[in-house]
Simulated scan of single mutants.
Amino acid sequence: MPPRTTATARQQRLGAELRRLRERAGLSTREAGQKLGVDPARISNIESGRFGVSADRVRTFALGYDCSDTGLIEALREMTAGRSRNWWDDYRETLPSVLLDLAELEHRATEIRTAQFTHLPGLLQTTDYARLVFRQNVPVLPPPEIEYRLSHRIKRQGILYRDDPTPYTAIIHEAALRMQFGGADLMREQLVHIAEMSERDGVDVLVLPFSAGIFPGAGQTVVYAEGPVPQLDTVQLDTEHGSEFLHAEAQLVKYRTIMERFENASLDAASSRAFILGTIANS
């Protein structure tokens, strides 16, 4: 396969998983190359995502690295499937690649959990709310890019409306619900939308109230996207310098624990819906 000029987060992840398998087998790239009959430089390029790799070769690598986890091997083989054009590719020349990677991550996730503390979840935002979020960007975005980002965000929400919607749990801190972002009317419309979405199959909205007191983490937005096997889960963090994708084993274990603690500290789905409706009534 010819080298790529750029690799998507998914392609880089496949390479990273193959590198993990090699390292767990205690093999250097030179030793792996000798064992598998592959140029060590090619192995390095595959692991970096610069070179593609076939499904058959993934199986050869995994078996050569003494991996007996058939579920993981098949999931990695699926990641090599020929990349057909998807809706987010229409934004490749207009938006940062990290936003396209996020759309693909959500599209392929088997389940998504998110925790939000100041802004409301992107997959549950109304058009007016999302537009205001983008207007707060630093540096300031030009109006055309705001509209591109808005269109992209709304299309991301399609995973909640398709015939087989992705199971989605949104943990929202009370602070985000009570913040008068854009004024009372806009927030009322936004909260009504969230309450309505919480009635949809596969969508759970959980409120983390002020009364819960202390909670783990530093209050940053967390998205936990489950893969076909736990080893292929991914954590996405929103930071002031952009999105970060985490998938090291220790990181996944940490954020699984954090998300479980968030859920345990939150109101249940029915109580959360009542809380949101009460907030609307008092706004």
Results as ranks from 00 to 15, higher is better:
H152Y: 07
R156G: 10
K155G: 12
G158T: 11
D164S: 14
A170D: 10
P167M: 05
D163P: 11
I154E: 07
Q136P: 14
H152A: 03
Y168F: 04
P144L: 10
Y161I: 15
R156N: 04
A170K: 00
P144A: 11
H152C: 07
Y148L: 02
Y161Q: 13
R149K: 07
P139E: 08
D164M: 14
Q157D: 14
L150P: 03
T169R: 07
Y168Q: 01
P144Q: 11
L141Q: 00
R156M: 06
A170C: 08
I146C: 01
R135T: 06
H173D: 12
R156H: 13
P143H: 06
L150F: 04
H173G: 11
V140Q: 07
P142N: 14
N137P: 15
H152D: 07
H173I: 10
I146M: 04
R153I: 00
I171E: 13
E147G: 01
P143C: 06
R153E: 12
Y161W: 15
I154T: 07
H173L: 07
R156T: 06
L160V: 05
I159P: 00
I154H: 04
E147T: 04
I159E: 00
S151R: 03
Y148S: 03
P167F: 09
D163F: 12
L150R: 01
E145T: 11
D164L: 14
R153G: 07
S151D: 12
P143F: 04
R156K: 04
K155R: 08
D163G: 13
K155I: 13
V140E: 01
I171D: 15
I146W: 03
A170N: 06
Q136D: 12
P139M: 11
P144T: 05
Q136T: 15
P142D: 08
I171P: 13
Y161N: 15
P167V: 10
Y148R: 02
T166Q: 02
S151H: 08
P139C: 13
T166C: 03
P139K: 11
T169N: 08
P167C: 10
I146T: 04
H152P: 11
T166P: 05
V138H: 07
Q157H: 04
L160I: 06
R156E: 12
I171R: 08
I154S: 01
T166N: 03
S151C: 15
L160Y: 00
N137V: 12
H152K: 02
L150E: 01
R156L: 09
H152W: 03
R149A: 02
Y168W: 06
I146G: 00
P143Y: 03
R156W: 07
P165Y: 03
Q136E: 12
S151W: 13
